[in-house]
Simulated scan of single mutants.
Amino acid sequence: MKRRGLRRYFRNLKNQTLPEFIDFSGSEQSWFDFFHLHIDNIGLGNRSWKARKQHLDALFDLAGMVETKLQHYPKDYQYWIEIDEKDSVEDAIYIHTQNPNGSTFPFRLNFDNEAEVRNPVLLEYLKIKEYQIEKKKLIDADGKIGITYFLYKGGIGTQIK
């Protein structure tokens, strides 16, 4: 993306809202199969820490909106945020429930909390958020090992751990 329009892009980033098609009603059609929302769909957050932080701020604002909706969601669910250490495009908010597709619920992950941190600035930013943080080594599409942070709050949904 050229520089033209970047100011508007980042201003609009602050005004993200939940898509209206997300059904938190609890009806029979209200289910989530690893449903996730991304903020940075084009990779602008990878340009600099300033850009990444703006995308993360917008992601956590959106996460707050999701958490508010989930307070009244009548079904069992799992909720977490994934933050990729290197790639802003991969950062996302996840919701998962029992669903007609048959994917495992509850979903469980084993974490690698001894994994080497390569981006201490990102980790420090995440530590000031009110989430529990776990780390996991994941292999990307290019076969490279990277660290992904999994953030969740105790008392919100069924835990992924």
Rank of each mutant, 00 (worst) to 15 (best):
M1I: 12
E67M: 11
P19M: 07
M1D: 09
L122A: 14
E82M: 06
W49A: 04
Y125C: 05
R11I: 09
Y73Q: 05
S103L: 10
P120R: 08
N41D: 08
H72F: 03
K144Y: 15
F107R: 14
R108E: 06
T17N: 10
D87M: 08
E82T: 04
V89T: 14
F105A: 07
Q54K: 15
Q132M: 05
K86Q: 12
K136G: 05
I160C: 01
N15I: 06
D112A: 08
K69I: 04
T104L: 08
F24E: 00
F150G: 02
I95K: 07
G64Y: 15
D57K: 11
S27C: 01
G157M: 01
L151F: 13
P106Y: 11
K53E: 15
L18N: 03
E134K: 14
F111V: 12
R7K: 12
K136N: 05
Q159L: 09
G157P: 01
Y149V: 14
T158F: 05
G45C: 04
N101T: 06
Q29G: 00
L13N: 14
D140Q: 12
Y131E: 12
F10K: 04
N99G: 00
E124A: 05
D76Y: 03
V89S: 06
D33V: 00
F150R: 06
F107A: 03
E28R: 15
Y149I: 10
N110R: 13
D112M: 06
R11Q: 10
L18D: 08
Y94P: 00
Y9Q: 02
S48R: 07
T148M: 10
I39N: 11
D61Y: 15
L44N: 10
W80S: 07
D142W: 15
Q71M: 11
G143K: 12
Y149A: 06
L44R: 02
Q71I: 02
P74Y: 09
E130L: 06
T68F: 12
Y131T: 14
V66E: 03
L37F: 05
T104A: 04
I81S: 11
D140H: 07
R108L: 01
R3Q: 10
G26F: 02
F111I: 09
F35C: 02
K136W: 05
N113W: 00
A141P: 03
D57A: 03
W31A: 00
Y73L: 03
G157C: 04
L62V: 10
P106R: 09
S27T: 02
N110I: 13
S27I: 00
Y125I: 03
A92G: 06
Q132L: 09
A58L: 09
W31N: 00
N15F: 08
D23R: 01
I95P: 11
W31Q: 01
S88Y: 15
K14D: 09
F32P: 02
N15Q: 15
F107L: 13
F24V: 05
D40C: 13
